[in-house]
Design a protein around this nucleic acid. Structure first.
Length: 155
DNA sequence: GCCAACGTTGGC
DNA sequence: GCCAACGTTGGC
């Protein structure tokens, strides 16, 4: 069992969108960064838990938890010329991009803002708060995950 | 909207 | 394979 953090712009797809989605499940498509792709393709497994993070918004924050309900599969939006995720360089015979499926688990009663997370000594090593990290799919340690769950309950 | 910090591209 | 130029991310 591994733990991850995945970023989404709430204007594009928020935790509420996941909550209200059919079967409370969504295909996590459009990852176009190699490091993130490698995590998705090679390391993310069925039933792994995911911290759902809202980025590029007024209050960047971890807002809840999701679960991996399908491991990596080919992201076909890369072949769809109509898609905003279209990538002419991804060869259908040798796909470059992958996706996973996420299902809703919980929405935190209180979101944990980036400001709070940065101020917490227990999370000093967390990839999210380390300088210069822009990864939209990133690993989270079990300790970090449990600590964040406690923070979400405490408030 | 700005811009720092990264990532990617492509000429050489 | 280097690196300048360009593109993107994402907090502020």
């Amino acid at each position: 069992m591994k733990y991850w953090l995945m970023k989404s712009e709430p204007d594009e797809f928020s935790i509420d969108d996941l909550l209200n989605a059919e079967k409370q499940t969504t295909a996590w498509q459009g990852i176009r960064n190699y490091q993130a792709r490698n995590f998705l393709r090679d390391d993310v497994q069925l039933n792994d838990l995911v911290l759902f993070y809202h980025s590029s918004c007024k209050v960047p924050a971890i807002v809840g938890v999701a679960k991996i309900t399908q491991a990596a599969s080919i992201d076909i939006t890369a072949f769809d010329i109509q898609s905003k995720y279209y990538d002419a360089k991804s060869d259908p015979n040798n796909p470059r991009w992958f996706q996973v499926d996420l299902s809703y688990v919980e929405k935190f009663a209180k979101q944990l803002t980036l400001t709070e997370l940065k101020a917490d000594p227990a999370l000093a090593e967390m990839v999210l708060v380390t300088k210069g990290t822009r990864l939209s799919v990133q690993p989270v340690t079990e300790q970090e995950f449990m600590h964040i769950k406690r923070l979400a309950q405490a408030s």
